[in-house]
Design a protein around this nucleic acid. Structure first.
Ligand code: FES
Ligand code: FES
Lengths: 145, 145
DNA sequence: CCAATAAAGGACTTTTTTATCCTTTATTAA
DNA sequence: TTAATAAAGGATAAAAAAGTCCTTTATTGG
């Protein structure tokens, strides 16, 4: 596994896809999303349900329904998605699994790991969900290769 | 979970502990290690078996036996431990789970994630297993808080 | 109203990770 | 040579993550 869980990876890819579609003025359904981000449909449905329930994405039922993001949603940091799925361990936890990370009782990796963690935090906070819409629409970036 | 699996976290903590003891001229047994790094004993045994089999740590059976590291072992990078436990996904994989990471078909996070990944690689390659022995012996660093 | 559509939700299964227990093998020292 | 000790190894078990399937609820357009 990478640094995020599979669930979280699907979530990130899905919100980028939904963002792209929203930018183009369209709602999109689970089936379409799953195909375009290469994820299992039923499982993705559960993930989007969760994101929807906590208000990170919007959804509507019935024909013409689907998932979408409003302007506010498009400007949220990716960190919100990750936090909703994984909790905040990745933002605060110790790199080698100590029960908490602290300056007073640092683990051997503390100094170096803090840099790693800060870089992750920076990446996730500076990236808004809608940040890459244009590149995605242009096909300069991919969500499924 | 943090960026490493629990198994990997135990492995890292354990080798640091074994390194410390080796520096002090002592072998150490599973029970002692497990107590000092706060890990389940039987599970840790499996992990150390694996590291032992691939030659990253040494062991000897019977009374006076235990796990230890020779001078060569103490100088290996932590990356070797992580690779033995987790494979090299963390060193090469895509941050949002695409099947491979590439410049030609980058995901939205590629540019930023490369920095994160390089920082992780740097940390794991520049840290030798024996690097923190003195601080561990002095109690300036901890493996179990 | 009704049929079709799409998300929400509940119940479940599979797979992977984490963890335990018990037996076997090797080594030591008395 | 034997009793004690400690790692190695096999067989399971428990818990968590990943994944599926089917029913319910809401919405739409005819
Ligand atoms: S104590 Fe381990 S990263 Fe801070
Ligand atoms: S393609 Fe995703 S990190 Fe390189």
């Amino acid at each position: 596994m990478g640094i995020f869980s599979k669930t979280c990876e699907y979530a990130i890819r899905a919100v980028f896809y939904i963002a792209q579609k929203s930018q183009e003025g369209q709602k999109t359904g689970i089936k379409e999303i799953a195909e375009n981000i290469d994820s299992p449909e039923a499982f993705l449905a559960k993930i989007l349900q969760k994101l929807s329930k906590v208000g990170l994405i919007s959804s509507s039922k019935g024909p013409t329904g689907g998932f979408y993001l409003d302007t506010v949603g498009l400007q949220r940091p990716l960190a919100d998605i990750v936090a909703a799925i994984e909790g905040d361990d990745i933002f605060t936890g110790c790199g080698m699994g100590l029960s908490y990370c602290s300056e007073e009782n640092p683990c051997p990796l503390h100094k170096d790991f803090k840099k790693v963690r800060n870089q992750i935090i920076k990446m996730l906070h500076e990236t808004t969900i809608g940040k890459f819409n244009q590149e995605l629409i242009n096909g300069q970036l991919t969500l499924n290769k």
